[in-house]
Design a protein around this nucleic acid. Structure first.
Lengths: 342, 342
DNA sequence: AACGTTCCCGACATCGTTTGCGCAAATTAT
DNA sequence: ATAATTTGCGCAAACGATGTCGGGAACGTT
């Protein structure tokens, strides 16, 4: 099956390419009969407009770019699923770039997607990103941009995030209500919006229940596979060690579970553990892991919807807002000593 | 930061665009001094050639397309990581498409990547794909193609796969050696190459140890979340039910674990369980899951390397071969009754 | 001095598509 | 019947870059 162009149709029908182009787009200044002929011929040849040529012309490419830190991550891969589903339904293609948590690569990704003329950009910031000038430039070029999950307060754009404050609050309160008093919080880079919101939820819950916020129980970082263990050791050496861990990501939840088990700390008898995670196997872990579930797929869907809405009604500016998706607390054995005995 | 074109440089330097183009590509017929000027100006304006225009002209786009069934899958997301790493190092960008296990979408993806003028294509077939005419067309267009994991025997191209036979053989033999006799095999669609190879390994191990191959213990399918349970029920109702399950994918391993636990079948006392999986949490499950690990990242890396080699030495045809990456058997509690007592 | 080379560089066409403008024929108005 | 519109379509420019020509200047050769 070769690939036919508008020229082939024009030649076949003895028309000019302009006429064919206009007929295909349904222009009013083309004879209905001519239109029919063109449509029929296009159908017959299985004509598909060349997206590259369209992009060059500057018109819509019907592609949206997605830039995120890592694909191999439960949260993001589910978010992509949501994005793809919506995009596909609405006739858009998705081009995915990974920043690998690198600021430089994120900039390169943005440049790439701009020069590939995507119709819009969906982003979740790398952990190294604090300066958002490169995104401001995107906006200046009038390219629709929607941020999700890892967003920046400095940009006046539509954002779709989980209710991080609420989720963290619920998790922390749950730990307190199940009798915990020294709750460690393992989290990611402090300048990220999600980190701050979760930390705020954690603090708020502590304060509500009259517990003092102890800075030394909060640890930030990009925790590689071997970094969680030492940190747990350090925390457990305290005169009054934590009796619970609240972690802020998939990676941390798993790393922490592993570290605790390796150290023969029994969960939940010695310490409770609860994570912010989308692990679908959370229930099958030993012990089954309590979590705050962020609806990753839904976040992706809503972000994609907002973006495409913006792309398609470009003339009239859509309201810019922050959509906050509720999170869900799921209590399992890792935070419920009484469940162990059942 | 605006985006400058070759024209801007030409205007700035009072040269023609052709001269600038040639200077940038280092053509011998340009005065070294002129080259210097052009280079310097390009540097100053932060000139980046427009990939769209290049693609239109038919030259290299320095992008490779990756088409695979699902991103939200441990194996594939790790494979993408490997692909991305290599591609990035060698100056290529990766455009990812998901077929969602649909033949139609796979065809659409191929068309898209062709019209987006990727320099080469990396594919893992959807489970619905039995006809590979769309890929033959890719080859006919002289676009380099490398298949990985889910490959087709009908295509004469470079393929990168795990040692599925060896892995299945090792898993099955391990089960037999730990005393199991009725080993069920839950696997995916029968027409896929990986399915056949794994089945062959399973049979070979049975035969080596003098066990008869019982077709009724093998189940094929695309097992959704609620389909594994009923199948387990059915198998366990047999007069002589299986004493072990060997599953052929991440999804099946987890689904099976969950189904067995829900039915209060104790692993490994009642039945053993071993999977083909890349789950990084396999060790943390209850019980820790024995698995055959496929080096997903390595498969991705090698596939990307082969593809880019083909792209860059397009003139001289590189040898077409099938690269088989060894798998690794990791024995954990789910297949070792004696370990439970430790 | 007339010719052939070599060295640099510019004009132009091209990729596939859209779009502003213009132009002939057909239709309507005067 | 003539003028004014409308209808339907083609020409050519444009998007950004490359590549094929070909041409002018500065050499070297007889």
């Amino acid at each position: 099956m070769e690939t036919f162009t508008i020229k082939d149709i024009a030649r076949e029908l003895n028309l000019s390419t302009s006429t064919v182009s206009r007929a295909l787009r349904g222009s009013y200044e083309i004879n209905p009969e001519t239109k029919r002929l063109v449509m029929e011929c296009a159908e017959r040849l299985n004509y598909r407009p060349n997206p590259i040529a369209l992009s060059l012309k500057g018109s819509a490419s019907r592609a949206i770019g997605v830039i995120l830190p890592q694909i191999a991550n439960y949260f993001f891969s589910q978010a992509i699923n949501g994005i793809e589903a919506i995009a596909y339904n609405r006739g858009y293609h998705v081009i995915i770039f990974q920043s690998q948590e690198s600021y430089e690569r994120e900039i390169a990704n943005v440049q790439q997607s701009m020069s590939r003329k995507v119709d819009g950009l969906l982003m979740s910031l790398s952990s190294e990103t604090s300066n958002v000038a490169h995104l401001q430039e995107v906006l200046d070029k009038n390219v629709p941009l929607v941020l999700f999950d890892r967003v920046s307060a400095e940009l006046n754009v539509t954002k779709v995030v989980a209710d991080n404050f609420g989720g963290a609050f619920a998790a922390t309160e749950h730990l307190i209500q199940s009798g915990r008093r020294r709750i460690a919080h393992l989290t990611i880079q402090p300048w990220l919006s999600i980190t701050q919101e979760r930390l705020a939820g954690y603090r708020a819950a502590l304060e509500k229940h009259g517990l003092v916020f102890d800075e030394s129980l909060v640890r930030y970082g990009s925790f590689g596979p071997d970094e969680v263990g030492p940190m747990v050791d350090e925390l457990m050496r305290y005169p009054s060690p934590p009796d619970a861990f609240f972690t802020a990501s998939d990676r941390l939840a798993v790393g922490c579970l592993q570290a605790l088990r390796q150290r023969n700390l029994h969960i939940p008898d010695d310490v409770s553990l609860i994570g912010f995670t989308n692990l679908n196997v959370a229930e099958l872990l030993a012990p089954p892991l309590s979590t705050v579930v962020q609806p990753a797929q839904e976040i992706g869907q809503i972000a994609a919807e907002r973006l495409i809405d913006q792309i398609e009604r470009k003339q009239r500016a859509l309201p810019i807002e922050t959509v906050r998706i509720p999170t869900e607390l799921i209590v399992r054995t890792s935070t419920m000593p009484e469940m162990v005995k059942l």
